[in-house]
């Protein structure tokens, strides 16, 4: 249970969320996946959520996106309660999930078409293609793109709706180390450029330290928020600075400790 300041300025507010799923081997008993999650994210903030695999990070994002419903608890986007998926909460998965039958340009347009505002906002498509550096690939189909390019298209596709919160579910998890670091800078650039509130789920501690304003550490089964760490390192951050490394070893220790307490 974590105390948090209840300010109406927060873009995303989550209170006492519980979620359980039927156990795979025995559908009658329910397994608690999220146990009383509470936190809030301020407008313009970039918050990372890290934790061991299976701690319910992705489940939490799906709840915020409105793709699943909670057992109990409240979710607010601004002052609106969340009940179903909506364009004000963008979601980018680890798999870019581009529509393979649409070109890059049409993929980026998809949100505008879905909301029936393409005619008014057509000029924004070029802007977002430029923003992610893909203006030359508008006519290409997704299977021609590299992993990093595909993920940039997925980012542009989510951002074109001007979401109040962008939910990122390990978006860089499938990329190789070099592309990954480049894409971290890319996401940071988009964040600084647009000041979109971002909630980034990752299992990469370096990524969390490199990118976030705050890092929330989750424990496993049932998932709880164990600790929230403010990451106040000056930007742009240096992955090899002593402060960075100190924070890293602190978190590693915490995670190790968190792991022990969960099994105890």
């Amino acid at each position: 249970m974590v105390a948090f300041a209840e300010t109406d300025a927060s873009a995303l507010r989550i209170r006492e969320i519980r979620k359980s799923f039927p156990a795979p081997d025995d559908p009658v008993t329910k397994r608690l996946v999220l146990d009383g999650i509470s936190f809030s994210v301020a407008a313009g903030e970039l918050v990372c959520l890290i934790g061991p695999s299976g701690c319910g990070k992705s489940t939490l994002l799906r709840l915020i996106a409105g793709l699943d419903s909670t057992d109990s608890g409240e979710l607010f986007i601004g002052s609106q309660p969340i009940s179903e998926p909506g364009a004000e909460r963008g979601l980018v998965f680890q798999d870019p999930n581009l529509f393979p039958w649409l070109t890059v340009r049409r993929n980026i347009e998809a949100g505008l078409v879905a909301r029936r505002v393409l005619r008014e906002k057509r000029n924004e498509v070029n802007e977002f293609m430029r923003l992610v550096g893909l203006e030359a690939f508008g006519g290409a189909y997704p299977h021609h793109l590299s992993g990093g390019m595909a993920q940039r298209v997925a980012l542009a596709r989510a951002l074109i709706n001007h979401p109040k919160v962008l939910l990122l579910d390990e978006p860089l998890g499938a990329l190789d180390a070099f592309t990954r670091m480049r894409m971290q800078d890319e996401v940071l650039r988009l964040w600084e450029n647009r000041r979109t509130t971002m909630l980034l789920v990752t299992h990469d501690i370096d990524e969390a330290i490199y990118m976030s304003d705050r890092i929330m550490i989750m424990t496993q089964r049932p998932g709880r928020i164990d600790r929230i760490i403010t990451d106040a390192l000056p930007r742009p951050r240096d992955r090899s600075s002593s402060d960075f490394l100190r924070l890293r070893s602190d978190i590693l220790e915490l995670l190790h400790f968190a792991g022990d307490s969960a099994t105890a």
Partner: peptide, 23 residues
């Protein structure tokens, strides 16, 4: 996941059927 993505992009049922499921 295609349907999930479309729904987070603000898609209604018509879009889900005609622009995601059918293609």
């Amino acid at each position: 996941s295609y349907l999930d993505v479309a729904r987070t992009l603000g898609a209604g049922r018509t879009y889900l059927i005609f622009r995601v499921a059918i293609p």
